[in-house]
């Protein structure tokens, strides 16, 4: 099992490029450890800004740096970054169009037992609703690396959510299909389309394997780009399958499921079932315990597919 969390992959890329690119600046709000960015701070102190526990300051300062040509990466727990500094994300980053990449670490329910204050089950909805803000939830460390490399090449605002714990690889090192703002097709079947993002991609992929044993062919999309969503991929999957299941570590409102539903409904292509966290404070537990409880696992996704295809697993 991979021991490198996605957040560390971001640090790796920034470390590789910071020596040659002095405009890369990393900002933390007493979060360098939890963001896996302590090695960056140590190696590149001149390109690192600590703001203390002050998320509004974090994002405002990041925007000011970007105004002067810096490539700002502001990393803070997603729960705080997507709420406490929401207005700075809206005004200083998106509206002012500054080159700030907001890195929401320990996203979703990564902080499990710490409770709702530390969960960010609303971040996709919040960030997606801001004009000129992109939203990315990479699935594994290899895709996170590709995404980070790609983000370093553009100068537009973006919000990236990564989880706290290492997750199993979806892709193989050196063989990571990645096109910016295009979903990655992990399986192609005609019976059901499973569209997932972030940590839900792995159970989506596993669910397809379970369904395969039952003779059900699933299409699986890794929709790491929740905004701008890959509309074409959604349309193709819905056209092919008719039944679409979305899976996300997020509230039922305003996330991946909502975005996919809008497209499928507008095109009149089929049904969308949204598997998500509930509209409630999430039950206490580790990520795995919580996902299992809410059936956000391979078995739950497969069962949902079967039920909706009126078949028994």
């Amino acid at each position: 099992m991979n021991k490198n969390p996605n957040r560390a992959a971001i640090c790796d890329v920034l470390m590789e490029q910071a020596a040659a690119d002095k405009d890369i600046v990393v900002l933390c709000s007493d979060s360098r450890g939890s963001a896996s960015l302590a090695p960056f701070a140590k190696k590149f102190p001149e390109q690192f800004v600590e703001v203390g526990i002050a998320e509004q300051n974090l994002v405002g300062i990041a925007a000011g740096l970007a105004k002067c040509g810096k490539k700002s990466f502001a990393a803070s727990p997603a729960c705080f970054l997507s709420t406490r500094s929401y207005e700075q994300a809206k005004v200083d980053v998106a509206y002012s169009d500054t080159n700030v990449k907001l890195i929401g670490i320990s996203g979703g329910i990564s902080y499990g037992a710490l409770g709702m204050s530390h969960h960010s089950a609303q971040d996709i909805a919040a960030m997606s609703a801001i004009p000129n803000m992109r939203v990315y939830l990479p699935s594994d460390r290899h895709q996170t690396r590709k995404l980070t490399e790609s983000l370093l090449k553009d100068s537009k605002p973006a919000y990236v959510r990564v989880g706290r714990n290492p997750v199993e690889d979806i892709y193989e090192e050196g063989n990571v299909p990645f096109v910016m703002n295009k979903a990655t097709v992990l399986a192609e079947g005609k019976d059901v389309a499973i569209i997932a993002c972030g940590e839900m991609v792995k159970p989506a992929k596993d669910a397809a394997e379970l369904l395969e044993k039952e003779g059900i062919k699933a299409t699986v999309l890794d929709m790491y780009c929740v905004k701008p969503i890959d509309r074409e991929a959604v349309v193709n999957a819905a056209k092919k399958c008719g039944l679409v299941i979305t899976v996300e570590e997020h509230s039922p409102y305003g996330g991946l499921g909502a975005a996919v539903s809008q497209i499928v409904a507008a095109e009149g292509l089929g049904r969308v079932i949204n598997l998500s966290l509930p509209d409630d404070p999430v039950i206490t537990g580790t990520s795995k315990e919580v996902f299992d409880y809410y059936k956000l696992n391979a078995e739950g996704i497969a069962a949902c597919a079967c039920e909706n295809l009126r078949k028994e697993l």
Binding site: V49, I61, A62, G64, L65, K67, C68, G69, S72, Q88
Partner: peptide
């Protein structure tokens, strides 16, 4: 309340 943090970023850069 936005201007001072933004200005700090500019001054740092």
């Amino acid at each position: 309340g936005h201007g001072l943090p933004v200005s700090i970023g500019i001054a740092l850069a």
